[in-house]
Simulated assay, not measured.
Amino acid sequence: MLIIYGAVALAQDATTGTVRGNVVDTTTAQTPISGVRVVVVSTDGTENETTTDDVGEYTKSGLPPGRYLLSIYKDGYGDRTGKPVTIVTGGDHYVPLKMTKKDTIVTFFAKFGVVFWPLLLCSVAALTFIIERLFTFLRSRSKLGTEQFMASITDSLRSDNIMEAVSTCEEAGGPLANVLKAGLLRYSQAQIEEQEITKEEVQESIQEAGLLEIPELERNIPVISTVAVISPLFGLLGTVMGMINAFTTIALEGTGDPQALAGGISQALLTTAGGLTIAIPCLIFSQVFESWVNKFVLEIEQVSTEIVNQLILGQSA
């Protein structure tokens, strides 16, 4: 019976092939990985599966001749799929494979090295001040809308009711209303004291109020712009330090393991990617905030000039 089974096995080996190999991790030690699911898929979609043993070895026999794709899977490691292999009759094909451990949050950020901490501070500062500026600009919007607000002010001035216009400013809120309110109160005070008031005096009151409102809108925008500038520099610093370490490894050990060298370089480039990830949103938001400030300033200048002219012309009439 043993002779018969042996003959059958030899006959099968003569018409089929075998693929075998080992699976290790991508660290310098190249530690064998046990329990890896190895799937051998033929061109017609037929799957043949095996598992690595305690020393990371796998073997799959009885494969008909043809082209196959090897794929390996294991929890905690990145999948590797589509490794081609051609099986020939009676062939014994050795295919070594490597797997990389999936990064956790801790291991991923550990790759950044010492520049992780300044990049973390930059990201926290950027996020904090961007959110703070967004809330500030949202609060600065008039509750009535610019057109409705201006229509109410104009109606009050036409009826020579300055205090009603002041009440409208208090109701609307925002930088524009606060600036106009200062000019209206200055004009109203002159009326109560029965004093002559010039256009320049009203404009001076409006400008003084603007000196209080505009800096509040511009506050912390320079910080965001600064983060946009320095975060790529920290990222570049980390890349340079990583490249120095990589070339030091080459000088000491040569280029015998290109995969390890490529892994070191890719980790070094992570810091540049991190710096740019912080800098790009900071640059965008700083430009948006500055454009909003310029829009507020232009709106204040145009509306205040219109209101001042209306006050002085109404007084002259």
Rank of each mutant, 00 (worst) to 15 (best):
I192M: 13
A9K: 11
T128Y: 15
L270D: 10
E196K: 12
F112G: 11
D155A: 15
M150L: 15
Q310W: 04
E49H: 07
D75K: 08
L180T: 02
Q30M: 11
A209S: 14
Q191A: 11
P32F: 13
K98M: 13
K102T: 04
L180V: 07
I284K: 00
G78E: 13
V179K: 06
S291Y: 07
A11M: 14
G35I: 13
E301R: 06
F289G: 04
P215Q: 04
T249M: 15
L212H: 10
M99S: 07
Q310S: 08
Q148G: 08
G256F: 05
E47P: 00
S231Q: 10
Q259A: 08
G113P: 06
V36H: 12
L217H: 01
S34C: 13
F109E: 09
I87H: 06
Q195K: 10
K74R: 12
S266Y: 12
L236T: 03
G264P: 05
W292F: 14
L283G: 07
I300Y: 07
G210F: 03
E132T: 01
T86R: 10
T249C: 09
I307F: 03
I192P: 04
Q191H: 10
T146V: 15
T16P: 01
A125R: 07
V308M: 08
T168N: 03
E299V: 03
P32Y: 14
T198D: 14
D44L: 12
I230G: 05
F149C: 08
N245K: 14
D25P: 03
L276R: 05
F109A: 02
L127S: 08
R141E: 01
A110T: 01
R37M: 02
T255H: 05
G235K: 12
T255K: 00
T26N: 05
S286L: 06
G242Q: 02
T239Y: 08
G145S: 11
G82S: 10
V115G: 13
V40N: 10
V202E: 01
E47W: 03
I153E: 09
A260G: 14
T31G: 03
I33R: 13
Q30W: 02
N48A: 06
G242F: 00
A9T: 15
S205L: 01
S316T: 11
Y187E: 10
E301N: 14
D160L: 06
R219L: 08
L211H: 13
I284C: 06
F247N: 12
G145E: 04
V115I: 14
T52G: 05
V240L: 00
E132L: 03
G145M: 10
S71P: 12
M1W: 05
F149D: 05
D75F: 09
P258F: 09
I300D: 02
A209C: 09
A279M: 10
L185S: 11
A29K: 15
G45E: 01
G275D: 07
A7W: 02
N48D: 00
A209V: 09
